[in-house]
Amino acid sequence: MAQRHVRVLSKVGLHARPAALFVQTATKAPMEVTVAKPGKDPVNAKSILAVLGLDVRHGEEITITVEGEGDAERLLDELEAAVNVEAESA
């Protein structure tokens, strides 16, 4: 199992383009992928319904978990990039 905490820097949070890219990226991977907000149950990262329902806002931290055979670190890199595809420059 590989896990990464990611702060959501995109202004719209994990909605719209970041959410769509995130789910597309997760769906392409053979591994199981979940995403969670602190203190909440993880949801299936391959479901746009579940991810939109998670309602992650700008500045919140999420935990992405990858389980199964495959290059988990590379997938986490891609997922992190998707989350922050519209990150505001600091």
Partner: peptide
């Protein structure tokens, strides 16, 4: 909006 126009959301 390409996110919708390209059916990225669904």
């Amino acid at each position: 909006d390409p996110v919708f126009a390209q059916a990225m959301v669904g």
